[in-house]
Design a protein around this nucleic acid. Sequence first.
DNA 1: AAAAAACGTTGACATAGGACAATCTTTATA
DNA 2: TATAAAGATTGTCCTATGTCAACGTTTTTT
Lengths: 189, 189
Amino acid sequence: MYDSLIRYFQSRAAIEKEQLDFICSRFSALKTKRNEILVRYDEICQHYYFVNKGCIRLFTINKEGIETSRFFAFEGSFGTALPSFIDQKPTFEYLQTIEKSDLLVISRTDFYQLVATIPAFAMIYREILELGFITAQKRIYGFQGFNALEKVQWIIANQPQFLLRVSNKMAASYLGITPSTLSRIKSKL
Amino acid sequence: MYDSLIRYFQSRAAIEKEQLDFICSRFSALKTKRNEILVRYDEICQHYYFVNKGCIRLFTINKEGIETSRFFAFEGSFGTALPSFIDQKPTFEYLQTIEKSDLLVISRTDFYQLVATIPAFAMIYREILELGFITAQKRIYGFQGFNALEKVQWIIANQPQFLLRVSNKMAASYLGITPSTLSRIKSKL
DNA sequence: AAAAAACGTTGACATAGGACAATCTTTATA
DNA sequence: TATAAAGATTGTCCTATGTCAACGTTTTTT
């Protein structure tokens, strides 16, 4: 059950078996259904999630009822509503498994205790933040000044599996275009 | 000279005088002119900058010659081309002081040494990353699905001094609209 | 298994905001 | 200080993409 998680850590830091076992012991398994909501709009996010199987989506719905997807975590990666997890303020977004999923969950308390006590864990978390920051920056640059076709080409180049894995509607809401426009672009390659 | 920097640290962590002095000793002063470039497009970013006075801008120019501004650091905050600073790959962007500025500069080597040896410094860096991440996310949400007027209203609400401090052209390139459009919107409030 | 709901695709039409250009103003340079 | 260069503003026109609707398909619910 912890194979993928252990691989995640071992590939990122030299870390002793004993510490690794301790880290794993803080994670518990969670099986979810398609479209199951993990964190609601006005809740405060208390957990960090690792995806063994399936996919987590982070999205919000504005006052006009329009969805915007911000982040997708697929197999072998971490995901949560990080701003809320960090600041302990309401998420103003939803965390959802868009497919039947197997997750590993750690509480915020345990998570920050690991950060505080295990330097290798703190380092990995710092790298997650650094990478998250870089990804967000690339997305800002990537989308600023791109037209709809360029956005689609960008996502195909940067996350080839994305359009195959995610519904037309969700993909459109991630790219910041309408489902109609995405559909039209796909039909022309 | 280090007043503002010291205040920055003291307001964020309990930190001993001796360590604070050591941290400050790793920063050196740098005076720059208006529109002076600190890091060029194909360079690798080797420094972290603290703004005592003035303003740093991070921007890129695409193949069509269009500028996109990604980040502005004003008095009392840190700024650098973080993705390049972290990964040591070319920035593909420019770091520039848009006004005559007084900066404090620390080398990447010294910076990461402080991160490795001074837990309070590591914690503050982690908080910078967390905050940067959150800011980037807000910007993605904020701009996705906003029209030009809403973007301008957003920046007025979130960074009231922004439009007053930054040129029309730079502000437009941050908001992802043309200078003409920004100009028209401002003229209608 | 049938009915209902959600989603995907495609057409017709409307519009926000981009492109370009003219003019004025501010900033840089000689 | 004079001249040149860059930026700001505003007009006209045009296009990419949004909106809305119709229809077929897939998914969910009963």
